[in-house]
Amino acid sequence: MGSESAATIPITVDFSGGLEMLFDNQRRYLISLPVTDESGKAANIAFLIEHLCKHYMKDPRADLFVLDGHIRPGILVLINDADWELEGEEAYEIKSKDNILFVSTLHGG
């Protein structure tokens, strides 16, 4: 969860559509994300995903969230309520107070 001394960005991360089950059934996390990844690159969505897997995922079923290092098919990523494809997907650089929502697409009816 980032060391106290390192610079961090405050963001909100939400899970919906059943994904919250992988994160201890908690739908919303207030996260202090390190400003940069290990290599000094500005924190982007790809880094956030890695960070979530490492520090927040309580369930062993990582495959339900990431596949081959990317978010698995059938999960939408919304950056401040807009589809991440409008924002640059994994490369989007996270800003203070961003809201990132992960939703798994549903098929029941």
């Binding site: 059943g18 495959d63 698995r72 059938g74 589809d83 098929h107 029941g108």
Partner: peptide, 27 residues
């Protein structure tokens, strides 16, 4: 909007996972 379907292992139906009536009704 949904380029690829989720892998079958991650998909659950109402028969398996259950469904609250008003949730699907609202939709």
């Amino acid at each position: 909007c949904f380029r690829k379907p989720p892998p079958p292992s991650s998909m659950v139906s109402c028969g398996e996972a259950g469904i609250m009536g008003p949730v699907v009704g609202m939709m």
